[in-house]
């Protein structure tokens, strides 16, 4: 059984025939070719697959594509400006070297933007707690947390 699903991804309307069991992350990666969203664990624990659904961070490996019918999805590919100018949080990760191998980075950046939205005054301790659902296999948390602190400030300044 295939079902037609339509949603907005990074501002563009997309639609496809998918099996009900197609996870959102499979749809993004395999149907749309948006491979920036990573699959680290497939058990909802690592956070590499975080995207924004209607403006809130969620794990795209733990939702079916058909559940996103008519909804708004933002992936890591949709963060930067059209001309390639990085989003302030991406810029902060670059400047603070908030990555080692880079595999967890898309999920980290998407969750970091969500933290900035919900908790614009987040301090280091809060940021560490908020990253509970994101695992960095390289254990590079120190720079990730510094990058997020700086990215939140940059996002606040941008308004």
């Amino acid at each position: 059984m295939s079902i037609e699903v339509s949603m907005k991804v990074n501002g563009k309307p997309v639609s496809a025939e998918v099996e009900p069991r197609t996870l959102l992350v499979q749809y993004l990666r395999e149907h749309l070719g948006l491979t920036g969203t990573h699959v680290g664990c497939d058990t909802s624990q690592c956070g590499c697959c975080n995207i924004h659904l209607n403006g809130e961070s969620i794990k795209s490996c733990t939702i079916f594509a058909i559940q996103c019918q008519g909804q708004d999805v933002l992936t890591i590919e949709g963060l930067a400006e059209e001309d390639g100018t990085l989003h302030p949080m991406q810029q902060a990760f670059w400047e603070h070297h908030g990555l080692q191998c880079g595999f967890c980075t898309p999920g980290m950046v998407m969750v970091a933007c969500d933290i900035a939205r919900r908790l614009p005054d987040a301090d280091e301790k809060t940021i560490r707690h908020e990253l509970e659902g994101n695992i960095c296999r390289c254990t590079g948390y120190q720079h990730i947390v510094e990058a997020i602190e700086s990215g939140i400030k940059a996002m606040n300044a941008r308004g």
Binding site: G47, L53, S57, K59, T62, I63, D114, E130, N134
Partner: peptide
């Protein structure tokens, strides 16, 4: 419960 992204669902 869980983590922020889990609590969003």
């Amino acid at each position: 419960i869980g983590d922020p992204s889990v609590r969003h669902r």
